[in-house]
């Protein structure tokens, strides 16, 4: 079992996902322990999606949405910001460091910023170490795959 932290990035299709794509096209280097999930908008992300990530043993979660005022659906990213705050509060109650979760805003043109964000989250998670909720590498990877599938369904207008 590897004990490297795994970070899950909940990315908006219209900004962060494109920025991640650009970071790749630009051959930018950033830690490989980030797994990207594509959502139609960060406003589509429910509190239980974020909690599910932690329950599956993910070590850090970043929610990356459009710049404030620039949401494709007007205010999805503002809703996500509030939900992230609420989940941070719940994580604190559970006994998990709330800083394992953070919301970021960037535009689709900011490939380098995406790489920076991933590095920033890694630097933040490193001293906290692997999540005490992690069961096994297989359980974690299966969980992430399941969440990716759900996110893609959301993109296609399927179940939440």
């Amino acid at each position: 079992m590897t004990q490297q932290p795994v970070i899950l990035a909940f990315c908006c299709h219209y900004c962060a996902y494109a920025a991640a794509d650009m970071a790749g096209s630009m051959r930018l280097q950033y830690p490989s322990n980030v797994r990207v999930l594509r959502f139609p908008c960060t406003g589509k992300i429910e509190e239980n999606h974020l909690l599910a990530a932690f329950e599956k043993g993910v070590d850090g979660v970043l929610v990356a949405g459009c710049l404030e005022g620039g949401c494709h659906f007007l205010e999805g990213n503002l809703r996500a910001k509030k939900r992230v705050q609420r989940v941070k509060q719940i994580l604190g109650e559970i006994g998990i460091e709330p800083e394992r979760l953070e919301m970021f805003n960037l535009s689709s043109a900011e490939g380098p910023r995406f790489a920076e964000i991933v590095k920033e989250m890694n630097a933040r998670i490193a001293p906290l170490g692997v999540s005490p909720l992690r069961k096994s590498e297989t359980h974690l990877e299966n969980g992430i795959a399941e969440m990716a599938l759900q996110a893609e369904k959301a993109i296609q207008g399927g179940n939440r």
């Binding site: 509190e47 239980n48 909690l51 599910a52 719940i90």
Partner: peptide
């Protein structure tokens, strides 16, 4: 239903810790 999922998940994590 949504809150039931949230509290269930939070409780599981809390119990595990």
């Amino acid at each position: 239903e949504r809150e039931t999922g949230i509290i269930g998940s939070a409780l599981r994590m809390s119990l595990k810790l």
